[in-house]
Design a protein around this nucleic acid. Structure first.
Lengths: 158, 158
DNA sequence: TAAGATGGTCAATGAAGTTGTCTATATGGT
DNA sequence: ACCATATAGACAACTTCATTGACCATCTTA
């Protein structure tokens, strides 16, 4: 019957952020131990934006909400770290396809597994039923595609 | 009873971030209409780190997880926007107290009210009971102080 | 085939953080 | 009381990452 006074409105957003941060920190701690110590929170978004079939720097910039020049520099970095590679596109010689390397794919596979493991641990903490209700509530509060790839830029936005 | 397969593990963190972002974007849209169009998501954390009694640039840097120089520049910006002011500290002439101005306090008051309004709207969407369960689940998943003031730095961290 | 749109790169700029250095002032041990 | 040490704040140089602007090569289309 909710006879208690509701908590202040600012608690929910802070808890949402804290929970997200807790999960992402745990992911990166584990994936670092599995051979990927150079990855940063935003790299997962970049990998997703590149996608399994590869893309171009310009398109990547559009997906991430940055200029093509900024996207090109990000690709330069990830290329140096060995996560992506550039290849010529025979069907359009202007384009250079950016694709995940084997190391990049390995990283995505490990991330997916670790996320599933983490979800099992949350299910063990909350119970599967309450975890599903939590996910369900979030879907109703924030519907739509959860992949908002311009997020890295968003937080520090001017 | 949960006969469906569970969603992939990466959905929950993305939904957490999307929900947080949705709320913060809505807050800033409303507070901009109420006379504070220059505020950015990270400013709320800075205001909280300054606190009601004021603080110094060095202490602010420690709370935000940045150097005192960076904190000093942030204070410069907020001072120009009229949200904070510097005052001498009689008990320690080295220190310069950074305090919220009337405009800064106005901003905090409006934020708190808007957050409460937003929570009422979520309660209308989910029902008060399910919203409380969601908040409760988050408290169990991510316990501790929700004010992690080094968050602005965290996301883009190297 | 010529005009416009698009992809990639180079260069200059700006914002925000860092390290390093400096002076002034507190503080605490002898 | 004194001196060594720690701290506050400011200034400067550098790094990083994004931006805008310009440029050329290439694709698309009227």
């Amino acid at each position: 019957m909710s006879s208690e006074a509701p908590p202040p409105g600012f608690e929910l957003p802070l808890r949402l952020l804290l929970a997200f941060r807790t999960i992402i920190d745990e992911l990166h701690e584990r994936i670092a131990r599995e051979g990927h110590p150079d990855l940063r929170p935003m790299h997962g978004f970049v990998f997703q934006a590149i996608g399994p079939h590869g893309t171009t720097a310009s398109e990547l910039g559009r997906r991430l909400g940055v200029t093509k020049q900024a996207a090109g520099k990000t690709v330069d970095n990830l290329e140096q770290l060995g996560y992506v590679e550039r290849a010529a596109d025979p069907s359009d010689t202007r384009r250079k396809l950016v694709r995940l390397t084997g190391r990049g794919v390995d990283c995505l596979v490990r991330s997916a597994r670790i996320f599933d493991e983490l979800r099992e641990e949350w299910a063990a903490t909350l119970g599967e039923e309450q975890l599903r209700q939590l996910e369900d509530g979030l879907r109703r509060l924030a519907p739509g595609d959860p992949f908002r790839l311009d997020t890295p830029r968003w937080f520090g936005a001017p």
